[in-house]
Amino acid sequence: MSEEPSIVFRPPEREDGAAIHQLVQRTGILDVNSCYLYLLLCTEFADTCVVAEEDGALLGFVTGLRLPQRPDSVFLWQIGIAPDAQGRGLGKRLVRAFLETSGARDARVLETTISPSNAASRGLFTAIAREHGAEIQVSEYFREDHFPPGHESEEHYRIAPIR
Rank of each mutant, 00 (worst) to 15 (best):
M1H: 12
M1V: 03
M1K: 12
E4D: 14
I7Y: 10
P11D: 05
R14N: 15
G17I: 03
I20W: 01
H21F: 11
H21D: 08
H21V: 07
L23N: 02
L23D: 06
T27G: 15
I29G: 00
L30E: 02
V32F: 02
N33R: 12
C35L: 07
Y36M: 08
L41V: 02
C42S: 10
T43A: 03
E44N: 08
A46L: 09
D47F: 08
E54W: 11
E54M: 08
G56W: 00
A57D: 09
L58E: 02
F61Y: 03
T63K: 05
T63M: 10
L65E: 12
L65M: 11
R66M: 13
R66Q: 15
L67K: 05
L67F: 03
L67I: 04
P68Y: 04
P68I: 00
F75M: 02
L76W: 06
L76E: 07
Q78F: 02
G80Y: 00
P83G: 05
P83Q: 06
Q86E: 13
G87I: 04
G91F: 02
G91D: 00
R93Y: 07
E100R: 11
T101N: 08
S102K: 15
S102P: 07
G103V: 10
A104N: 07
A104S: 11
A104I: 06
D106Q: 14
L110I: 06
T112P: 08
S115Y: 08
S115K: 13
N118C: 09
A119W: 06
S121Q: 13
S121P: 08
A127P: 04
R130H: 15
I136E: 00
V138P: 12
S139R: 13
E140P: 13
E144N: 11
D145Y: 10
H146E: 10
H146K: 06
F147E: 10
P148Y: 13
P149D: 12
R158L: 08
